[in-house]
């Protein structure tokens, strides 16, 4: 716990949060602009939620790729991996602590962004006199359950994607190559290039933003949702295991 705290402190002191924050401010500004100009008849909640989750397919994975590369690969590039990975708790735990610290930071940034984004757009909608909330056929409780369970899946998806970035980073040890490969994988998935090799049912990448339409469904598809959540968690555990095997074998130089 102490090491995770130190790792988070280090990330904050090294200002590794700056790049994600700039990207998010940019993201909020653009989304707010579009929302205020073209809400396409949707109410505030449905619209902002739709735009936010949809962007989880593109903008947030890019932010995650850059952030996790910064967290891990910079250690190899600056040779500080020697400090971090040659400690009494071992390379695997050092990697895990780093990953947990990175995941905590990215989750906080993600959740904060969601609420700040919602707040900003609420103000924009109010000023513009646009519809705030449509009467749904389901209750408020159901509404929040759907909204937050989707958010949870996105967070799990993002940290799973971060674990994949870690694996690429351990192999390449080069920041720019790690980011490029991660983005290439992301684009390839969106273009359906993986489907010939990996069935969609077991491809965690295909779960990104899958439930952005959740608020518009009459009946929520919880079974499918839980399956995708478990798929992400098991992929995440698999990635961590692979990272452990790799970090034990690589040379820290």
């Amino acid at each position: 716990m102490n090491v995770i705290k130190l790792e988070i402190e280090k990330c904050i002191k090294e200002r590794k949060y700056i790049a994600p924050l700039i990207s998010i401010v940019f993201f909020i500004a653009i989304s707010a602009y579009f929302a205020s100009h073209d809400p396409r008849g949707r109410d505030y909640f449905t619209y902002t939620y739709y735009v936010f989750i949809l962007n989880c397919r593109v903008i947030f994975p890019i932010i995650v790729a850059i952030f996790f590369t910064n967290v891990l690969v910079k250690e190899f590039e600056k040779k500080t991996a020697r400090i971090h990975f040659l400690k009494p708790y071992g390379r695997e735990k050092a990697l895990l602590y780093k990953y947990i610290a990175g995941s905590v930071i990215i989750s906080i940034i993600f959740i904060l962004t969601f609420f700040v984004y919602e707040l900003i757009l609420l103000i924009v909608f109010k000023i513009k006199g646009l519809e705030i909330f449509n009467i749904y056929e389901f209750s408020f409780k159901e509404f929040y359950l759907r909204a937050y369970s989707t958010l949870l899946l996105q967070i799990v998806f993002l940290i799973t994607f971060g674990a994949m970035v870690f694996i690429i980073g351990i192999i390449t040890k080069k920041g720019i190559i790690t980011i490029l490969i991660s983005l290439l994988i992301l684009i390839s998935e969106q273009r359906g290039l993986f489907l010939d090799i990996i069935p969609k049912r077991i491809l965690f990448l295909s779960t990104a933003a899958k439930y952005n339409y959740m608020l518009q469904l009459d009946k929520m598809v919880y079974i499918s949702y839980l399956y995708d959540l478990m798929l992400n968690i098991s992929t995440l555990l698999g990635f961590i295991l692979i990272s452990f095997l790799l970090i034990r074998r690589i040379e820290l130089d």
């Binding site: 280090k10 002191k13 090294e14 200002r15 600056k78 040779k79 500080t80 020697r82 400090i83 040659l86």
Partner: peptide, 15 residues
């Protein structure tokens, strides 16, 4: 029980 300085000091630049 091992402390080392190999080649150049590898420390965190922003700290």
């Amino acid at each position: 029980e091992i402390g080392f300085l190999i080649e150049e000091p590898s420390l965190y630049e922003n700290l």
